[in-house]
Design a protein around this nucleic acid. Structure first.
Lengths: 392, 392
DNA sequence: GAATGTAAGGACGGTTGCCTAACAAACGTG
DNA sequence: CACGTTTGTTAGGCAACCGTCCTTACATTC
């Protein structure tokens, strides 16, 4: 008997380690409908049927359940001069639910916010960390979340947290040294406390998600570089977050970026500086915010520009192999614009273009985030959007 | 109405652009069963039920369909001293079907083979290319495939082709300059000619798949570097192949690897050499087989070792950011062992370890392929295995 | 040797989720 | 005004899973 299954794979169901039931298929299709309305804007049931490949009957059914949950509403009939019955437009009710998001990237303060589904920040709350670590830090975070949940004026879809450290997809913090969290099931614990779905991810990853969803991403591969106290990266590839072997993808801060003999274009970076990790010349020793400030403090603008450009070139050299290998279409910088968005960025882009194939680099962008300070917050919100509704 | 869907995501259905029907769910579950038998070895229906989370009833049903297609067979009862009825062991019939695979990496010859499902090569055929390009090359390939299909002694599951060039997941060759193929729907065309499912992918990607499936991969991220006339890379991440923005991921050969001032440890690489791409100092100018031979020809062994180590260090420097960023667990080299598997590999590994975090590099391997010359062939076979049966 | 407990595999009925087919309603056009 | 077109709904059917009950077959214990 010849096997000629044409398989007609739908969406290449990943992770062959988990069973898939019809109900999961339905959840997927439901997400797809929501996703389409979310990104392509309002449309009729018939539009959705055409876009998804499902029948109008099924779409009606899915839409009914989405309306029952208050996620979708009818917006009235379409007013267009086409033959046939005009469809009734459907749209996502971005105002009917809210999301609580917290950004833990800052060592001093926990920044929280209530957002609607469009990513708009509605309210903010901040808590001083005051050096708290371990359980005390968890308690402070819990209190902040409670406060935010109470402040929400609509049903809260879930809570999203972006935190430094290595975090697995289930929201377990494997290690976050600056909070002294090790092997902490943060999502589960917070979820139990709050009675809400909680999603936790690395802050660079949430930043990448935020950029991918809200920041006019071009759809291709995306790398977001977060420059703060340290340097991290989040990568969205083929429409999903790259997790990596031990969920530690994006740890770009401790790649060697400065060698003994690096004194490019007469702007010497000096000897490779010692790094907290015990080695010398890590990217963090030149690109982190403290390092950049140390390097430019007291210099006149033109000298500072030269120093920043030298760092930019080192960044370009480090990124070139990554951009090439992954065929990324965008690299986005997050951090203080006055340091990053000038000679540094320009030098990095130029270096990147010098060092990669034109095919790759000509279509590539290296830009600042379009989300400003709230990148991590909206990213944490996307985490919820993605986790609860399947919308990315 | 509060939305608190606990979603209980199964395997995070990717690609939210395609509908999923119950039959797809079944195909997935079927694949999962097959995959388990394939990798974990024979087991009873009850074992499968425990491993997959499906019920014994469903497993029995799936197994029945797999047995009807001749993919699985009962091997007899388990002989073990446990209380209860002993289960009947099931195993994949790796000999009941065959796969035709073709490797187009070589410019001179097309290498084809018939393999069984365990990846064992049963028969080989080779065709001279004789400079044929375009349609003539397609015809030669078609003839080779016909020959192989005729040579198969069991039903052929499908045809897998690994080819240089940029190839989309549907098996359309977007560009393969050395064959003068541009925007060629190779998989569809071959499939129509042969009446069999055909899968086509980039040769580095097939090599990566082969390594991932047959080459004792550790399960984490994997990068396979193919060193031949050029240099390419295939990456398996989170259990799947990385496609990249324009399906061009893995184009690592044209990253700048040699700068003006690079003369590490007294083993000068000389001025950056001009590259076919029009720039200078690309990785290919030092790491491709011709480049390596040029560099070592006529040297005595110790001098050759020094030269190879210098290249290895450049490779380490290029790979360090990639390995760090993606948190890869393995880098595998494919190509002539006498050039790669010595000073070059050792220097690359050492450099990689110097330039990345210990957390990343200490668990990392840099090794030669364990599949020898047939890496690309068995990779192409995996393409079929994966495409037709969902086994990876 | 008989009774007991455990495990494997099959049979039956029920639920879910999608599809096809058919239909009523609403609109532009000839 | 009749007609074709498009929308959204209703009705009936198929596929795929689950839970529950049953038989079979073994190991252990008395």
């Amino acid at each position: 008997m010849t096997v000629t299954r044409d398989t007609a794979r739908p969406g290449r169901l990943l992770r062959p380690t988990a069973k898939v039931l019809p109900e999961h298929a339905r959840a997927h299709n439901r997400s797809m409908v929501l996703q389409h309305l979310f990104h392509a804007g309002p449309g009729s049931r018939a539009d959705l049927a055409r876009a998804t490949g499902l029948t109008r009957v099924t779409i009606s059914d899915l839409v009914a359940s989405l309306m029952a949950e208050g996620l979708v509403a009818e917006l009235g009939a379409r007013a267009e001069g086409r033959p046939g019955k005009p469809g009734t437009l459907l749209g996502v009710r971005t105002d009917a639910h809210q999301i609580v998001a917290v950004d833990l990237a800052d060592d001093e303060r926990m920044h929280g916010a209530v957002l609607d589904l469009s990513g708009t920040v509605l309210q903010r709350r901040t808590t001083r960390v005051d050096g708290r670590t371990g359980t005390a830090a968890v308690d402070a975070l819990t209190a902040l979340c409670r406060d935010l949940v109470a402040a929400a004026t609509r049903p809260v879809l879930g809570v999203g947290v972006g935190s430094p450290g290595v975090i697995d997809p289930a929201g377990r913090v494997l290690q976050a040294p600056n909070r002294q969290w090790f092997d902490l099931p943060l999502a589960d614990r917070l979820g139990a406390e709050l009675g809400l779905p909680v999603h936790v991810a690395n802050d660079a990853n949430t930043a990448a998600l935020g950029e991918f969803t809200y920041g006019g991403a071009s759809g291709g591969g995306l790398l977001v570089l977060t420059v703060g106290g340290g340097v991290g990266a989040g990568i969205v590839l083929d429409g999903g977050l790259v997790q990596g072997h031990e969920h530690a993808a994006g740890e770009i801060g401790h790649v060697t970026a400065v060698d003994e003999r690096d004194d490019i274009d007469g702007a010497p970076l000096g000897r490779p500086l010692p790094c907290a990790c015990g080695r010398r010349g890590c990217l963090e020793t030149v690109l982190s915010v403290p390092a950049l400030r140390r390097r430019t403090d007291g210099l006149d603008p033109s000298a500072a520009a030269v120093a920043l450009a030298a760092v930019g070139r080192r960044l370009g050299i480090v990124l070139a192999p990554v951009v090439s290998t992954l065929n990324l279409s965008e690299v986005v910088l997050t951090g203080p614009g006055e340091l990053l968005d000038g000679p540094l960025r320009e030098a990095a882009l130029a270096t990147l273009q010098e060092r990669t194939m034109p095919v790759v680099s000509s279509h590539m962008q290296l830009r600042m985030t379009s989300l400003g300070e709230d990148g991590a917050l909206s990213g944490a919100a996307v985490l919820v959007l993605s986790g609860q509704l399947g919308v990315t």
